[in-house]
Design a binder for these strands. Structure first.
Lengths: 220, 220
DNA sequence: TATAAAAGTTAGGTTAGACTAACAAATTTA
DNA sequence: TAAATTTGTTAGTCTAACCTAACTTTTATA
């Protein structure tokens, strides 16, 4: 079943709001607000998506994705994050520029395209914002985003994203020899100011707590 | 002015039909047929594009692009051909698979994306079909497509595309050491069967006329 | 628990871009 | 040059998605 760009957007936003909301269900108005539309518009589209068996109505205006709807949403998220990775790693886009373009690219329909893109990028597990990329089956590593400042001394982690995207910060990061997927070993920390001693590529450096709080990592 | 996908498609097709038609003008029905639409639909859209100053009506139903319309059409062709090149060279798409996906990708709106893609691909001048890629100003090398069989003995040319896309042919091509943008020097030919002796990367090989007719080149 | 506030739905209208059917204008051909 | 054919246009519908305004249902609060 080939969906329109709009139908796809509803499914994706519904999925993301559902995850965000945890146990809470997502209501018509909530969804409409997030999409920047009038409640009546969302109501109309949700009726159509119900017909197509992609969502259903759990108790008066609380919407839930069916398995099929969820699967489509996850594929969209997969495409979005793969494209972001491509833009960031191959086309020199910055941090904050990738989202808008990926928002368009995620609606390109081609199974082969996304498989080949994934391969081309080396099957990345995280996008440049540190969010996990679902695989072709919709599975992904549900990692809690850690900042370097939270990593206990003695353990090793991998840089997956940075929070700050100012030129000053990014330059500092690369000066230290850090890049996406760099291995970082936390040697120890100063109790006085929480500054951290880390090892990157065999060299030790000292970084401030502020610095460490702007580096996203996963433990390895 | 941000155009819709449909508006863009009309401009692109009108441009391509105009080039094809040479001096002839492109009529409403012709355009509609090429887009797979009813004449009435094309008529409606062309009225809208006239309002926007992208096309004008030269003598009852014969349509011509304005400078602005032509410029937009050329940018679409640029995007289309750059994406085709990307799919073919980076993502292992075959010959005949690139068009359909590029047809979608050409409608992504991002100046930066296309500039960076162009750079990433090394500023290619031809797409995998051997068609020239317009630059950001819409200029392109208007080369006549030559097949290797037409290149005079003694001259050197560059492979820009292949006509046949069967696995058997493509394998043969790469066995000889030929790839996109390979330099080929034509040493001489046999009058008997028009087979050609060529030099590739310092090695000489003999190829049949049939083979040579399936290799598109430009002279260098 | 009655009522106010919030949330959701229905009804009716708009725009883009398609369609068919009917009509008008050009062009071709007898 | 008149008739036949081709080509282009107009008029009126249809669908997807949006909108506003009015109404109903649910939930929260006095």
């Amino acid at each position: 079943m080939e969906l329109t760009k709009n139908e796809e957007d509803y499914l994706k936003v519904l999925f993301m709001l559902s995850v965000e909301a945890g146990n809470d269900m997502v209501g018509t108005n909530h969804l409409a607000a997030d999409l920047g539309l009038a409640p009546a518009s969302a109501n109309g589209m949700l009726k159509k998506l119900t017909e197509k068996n992609l969502v259903y109505n759990e108790k008066h205006g609380k919407w839930v994705l069916t398995d099929q709807g969820k699967s489509i949403a996850l594929q969209l998220i997969r495409k979005h994050r793969l494209w972001e990775t491509f833009l960031y790693e191959k086309l020199e886009f910055t941090w904050d520029e990738v989202h808008e373009v990926a928002e368009q690219l995620e609606h390109i329909h081609s199974k082969k395209l996304i498989e080949k893109l994934d391969k081309f990028l080396g099957y990345p597990e995280f996008d440049p914002h540190g969010d996990p990329i679902p695989n072709e089956k919709g599975k992904y590593k549900a990692v809690r985003k850690l900042t370097l400042s939270e990593v206990p001394s003695g353990s090793t982690c991998k840089l997956i994203a940075v929070k700050d995207s100012s030129a000053a910060f990014l330059q500092y990061v690369s000066e230290i020899g850090l890049g996406i997927r760099s291995q970082i070993k936390v040697i120890g920390r100063q109790a006085f100011d929480n500054s951290i001693r880390i090892e990157v590529d065999g060299t030790e450096v000292q970084v401030s707590e502020k610095f460490a709080m702007n580096i996203f990592v996963v433990t390895v």
